[in-house]
Design a protein around this nucleic acid. Structure first.
Lengths: 226, 226
DNA sequence: TCTAAAATTTGATTTAAATCAAATTTTACC
DNA sequence: GGTAAAATTTGATTTAAATCAAATTTTAGA
């Protein structure tokens, strides 16, 4: 179920033949980003693509009134910012780090070089973009047809998956209420009320801003996805 | 503005080198579809991809309660159903013809053959998928943040573009109110009210089910895209 | 550690849009 | 052309969620 809503494009690197992978890793230039730093902004032209080594990045659109709609949150191991390069257009949205991150940059030239020389990379990108396309279609239908309560439950599950750490028992979702509301498609106050209800029902617990899911099965039911 | 909301992937064929194009056209198998016929349904596995020679096809998701969210309406000259092939997954949605259509089918084998042999085709698909991805991101933000009135205006403009015929003066949008509501993300009654308001303000006129836009500039303003 | 600012929560009210119901028009098929 | 069914429109009511306002908690930086 959760794969319907996450790109999880880490397989691009892991399934790439070793010489191609080494080429990629050699041309990447790492840069550290502090929390809340923009990586690229809507309307600007791309000069390369990005790979998230560690940390988290949100992709969002800002409307005329300054409201954010978070489209997606990238996790370590995911490429981003490549579709504007491929469609030869300006960025359609803005990306900002939501925690300290290390992000690698690959110039357009190098990107095109590997595209021309590696049919595996092309094929993996086609696969990944196709999956990403279907994730957005799923999110579209959710935004249109599901209640806020259902959407909050779903987004908590998505975030649980994104914040999960291997070999660590407890998962804490560490995201501002503002960002959580903006990815759910609601306002902060409504989000807080739903979270309050979930706490009352022992579905989640909070410690400051951190959220821990206590009853995943029940949240899946509420999200109405099974 | 309208290109933010339409795939318009007709360039895949027109920009394909001639030998590749001829290969494609030779392997396509045409089939006629009557209005309201399904082409593929959500959850099934793909056996090939489709090309819309003439007519129109809607792509939609059905939720647990039987409500439709139309994701996109394909126009003649557009490929569809290829992202499930590329991502090696079941179809994430259903496609149905919304008028009599002629649709060509290309088997997975032939599709993979041309992918392997034509880097131009791969590159054009990457370009198209990237643009389609950005269209869905735009639609997502619209569904989340815009009023129904704004969304109706926007969808009328999108449909005006889709129903436009070269060398013909008047464009009639010929789509059921149910489908129009389902692509706008609202219910039939609300849609009818907004259309009624637009008619009162001489922004549109109707003849039976057909809708003609009378004041495109004003609708663009109402849609809040400029 | 302290504190101002930002974030979050809680309460009350309003609003956009959905739902329910009925009337009217259009369509599809014979 | 006729007609039953489906689609569309119109009216009334309800509801989910936004907005407004104030209280409380957390955060970031000195």
């Amino acid at each position: 179920m959760i794969t319907k809503f996450t790109f999880n494009s880490q397989y691009i690197l892991s399934e790439l033949p070793l010489p191609d992978r080494e080429f990629l890793e050699n041309i990447m230039v790492d840069k550290k980003y502090r929390k809340n730093q923009p990586i690229f902004t809507e309307g600007t032209l791309p000069s390369g693509i990005f790979y998230l080594q560690s940390g988290k990045v949100k992709k969002y659109k800002m409307d005329n009134d300054g409201r954010e709609q978070i489209i997606y949150i990238y996790n370590a191991g995911e490429f981003f910012g490549y579709s504007s390069v491929l469609s030869e257009s300006t960025y359609g949205d803005t990306t900002v780090s939501i925690e300290n991150s290390i992000i690698s940059f690959i110039t357009i030239n190098d990107f095109n070089k590997i595209l021309e020389n590696s049919s595996s990379f092309s094929r993996l990108l086609l696969k990944s973009l196709s999956h990403e396309f279907s994730v957005l279609a799923n999110l579209m239908a959710v935004l249109s047809q599901r209640t806020v309560r259902e959407r909050v439950a779903l987004n908590l599950l998505i975030l649980h998956d994104k914040y999960k750490v291997d070999n660590v028992d407890i998962t804490y979702i560490m995201l501002s209420r503002s960002d959580l509301a903006n990815m759910t498609g609601t306002v902060i106050e409504t989000l807080a009320r739903v979270l309050h209800d979930f706490k009352d029902d022992s579905l989640i617990s909070t410690d400051g801003r951190k959220i821990e899911l206590l009853n995943i099965e029940r949240l899946i039911q509420i999200a109405n996805f099974y």
